[in-house]
Amino acid sequence: MTKPLVPVTLMVNGERYDVSIPPWRTLLEVLRETLNLTGTKRSCGEGQCGTCTVLIDGKAVNSCLYLAIEAQGKAIQTIEGPAAGDPVVERIQHAFANKGAIQCGFCTPGMIIATKSLLQDNPKPSEDEIREALVGHLCRCTGYVQIVEAIQDAAGALAAKEGA
C-alpha cells in the first residue's frame, strides 16, 4: 500500500531535520522511528502516562497526541537535549539520580522534561504544586516520594545558583 508522504521540517534539540512522513504520524513516532531519538518513550499511546513528554516551544506536551506536522516551525526539546547540554536539565537529572527517583527509568525522561517545564514556570513550587505537575505522569516503581524529593532538591539547587 503506498502511503501519501508529506515533507516536514522539524527543529529538534536545535538541529534541523527534513523528513517525508505520512501526515498522520505523531511526533512521538517520528522522533523514535524516523529520527531514532528513542529517549522519548512509548507506553500508553493516549496521553495518560506521560512517558512521551517533550517540550514544544518550552511547554510540556504528550508527543503521542501531537501530530508531527503540527510541530513544524516550533522548537522541540527531547531528553536527548541540546548537544551542548542544558544546565537546568542536567541539574534535574542529577537530582533524580541522587535522590533515588529513578528505578526502572521508563517514566524518567518524561518526568525530567515535565520538571523542567514546571521549574521554568514556577521556580519555587510547593509540594502540592509539584504533585499537581506530575498528575499526567505515572510511575509504578517509586511511589512518587523520591520524585517529589528530587524535584524539591533540583528547585532548591537551581534557586541557590540563581541567587549566587
Binding site: L37, T78, I79, Q93, H94, F96, I102, G105, P109, I112
Partner: peptide, 8 residues
Amino acid sequence: DALQKATG
C-alpha cells in the same frame, strides 16, 4: 545506571 536512564 541512573544517569544513563535520566539522559534517555
